[in-house]
Simulated assay, not measured.
Amino acid sequence: MAFNARILTVSSLKQAQDELAKVNCDKTGIQIMGNKAVFKVMKLEGILTKSANLLKQTFLAKGGEVAVGRGTADLSVERTDVLICATLKQYKMAISQLKMQPWGLPKIAQAIEDALTDNEKAPERRYSWGEKVLSILPQRTLIMGILNVTPDSFSDGGRYNTMDNALRRVEEMIQNGADIIDIGAESTRPYQDGEKISAEEEMERLGSLLENVLAISSVPVSIDTYKPKVALQALQLGAHMINDVWGLQHDPDMSKVVAQYKVPVVIMHNQNGTNYEKDIMSEICSFLQKSIDIGLEAGISFNQFIVDPGIGFGKTPEQNLVVMSRLEELTSLRCPILLGTSNKRFIGEVLQLPVEDRAEGTGATVSMGIMKGSNIVRVHDVKVMARIAKMMDAMMRRDV
């Protein structure tokens, strides 16, 4: 191949600066050229057409491109979605000018600036409960091991709903690399075919088991529940996290409980049915932003939120595949991302395999999730998935 010509994928300013340094560009040149070497495509929704026209003119003047909906130029529509295609340098020049424009453009400019900043910086979190510490850091994927104490969970129902089996399972998962143990006492399995139980029955299943798990666990324990009564009692017993499959939107009291105990909370996207009026990732992000707003209003700190796209919940198998292919869009929410795909039906439908034979498919989704920004993976097979995650983390490093 003449001159060893090849295309580089440069998605961050640091990567651009590293590549410039490798060609022995001087420091001043690196500072000047870095912002020119990173190209970003950004989507904005529901922009007033007057604002969209000014936005487009501003970016065009800087050398960027902006796509708007038909009817925007002649103001025959009230609002339009916008697609911006520009380098970081063009974004920065346009943002500076937009902040001085009318018709709400300073607010739009700030949203663009925030999105660019968030895209460059992975979220970091540190939670502590006495001797237990949970750190969410770039290039280190955390493993959440699943402990279902239910008779009807889709993957392992009935296997760990006795005290001895459950405790042995916890010890095994921790030895195999689990950073968090997630306990579920009601099947919230996808496709809404799990048996619904009362808060009292759910807590009866949890009760003494949770106390014993907390006594032996060297890692934080999360409770998978959408019921505030269960969450409250579990936190009173010493649980460390809440994993809510309805993202604080099933019962308004859930956000109050989480705020009271100041614990991390996983907010998952969910809905009844699989119909989406707009783009599926747009609706998922809007749902999760609403969950965040509900939590903030109740007094939950922004740093306590972890988002989950809800693979398998309110989504067809094909929709699950679309969400997997576009997971990186969740980074706009500025929260750590939890991915739960373990052994789920969409994997079985692609591979035509039963639930007990989906390890390779799960591994593929875990790998894809890590590549696209997932910080935590929720899995049944901790040993195998921890190894996959560790290998992915090593390959994803950009500092060599």
Rank of each mutant, 00 (worst) to 15 (best):
203 M>F: 15
261 Y>F: 15
193 D>H: 14
162 T>D: 14
373 G>H: 08
76 S>T: 15
341 T>Q: 01
102 P>Q: 04
264 P>V: 07
219 V>W: 07
234 A>V: 08
165 N>V: 03
277 E>F: 04
210 L>E: 06
186 E>L: 00
104 G>K: 02
244 D>Q: 09
255 S>Y: 10
101 Q>S: 11
296 L>G: 00
129 W>I: 01
185 A>Q: 04
103 W>Q: 12
148 N>E: 10
105 L>R: 12
77 V>R: 12
334 R>G: 02
334 R>V: 06
176 N>E: 14
321 L>R: 14
197 I>S: 08
228 P>A: 06
173 M>N: 00
171 E>L: 05
80 T>N: 02
193 D>A: 14
226 Y>N: 12
314 G>V: 11
69 G>W: 12
182 D>H: 05
365 T>H: 04
16 A>N: 00
67 A>P: 03
4 N>F: 08
200 E>S: 13
65 E>T: 07
168 R>G: 02
161 N>P: 05
107 K>E: 15
276 Y>D: 09
325 S>R: 14
61 A>W: 02
63 G>Y: 05
342 S>I: 04
158 G>M: 12
155 S>N: 11
317 P>M: 09
99 K>R: 15
208 S>V: 01
170 V>D: 04
117 T>N: 11
171 E>I: 05
273 G>W: 02
17 Q>R: 14
299 G>D: 07
223 I>K: 01
216 I>R: 04
32 I>G: 04
283 E>H: 06
262 K>N: 15
228 P>F: 06
315 K>C: 09
234 A>S: 14
166 A>P: 03
225 T>Q: 10
33 M>G: 01
47 I>R: 05
385 M>D: 08
320 N>S: 12
176 N>D: 15
32 I>L: 13
68 V>N: 10
318 E>A: 14
5 A>M: 07
213 V>Y: 01
333 L>R: 13
69 G>M: 13
30 I>W: 07
103 W>N: 14
85 C>Q: 07
218 S>L: 06
138 P>K: 08
241 M>R: 01
199 A>V: 01
57 Q>I: 00
189 R>T: 11
174 I>Y: 02
39 F>G: 09
362 T>E: 08
189 R>L: 09
138 P>Y: 08
324 M>S: 11
92 K>A: 08
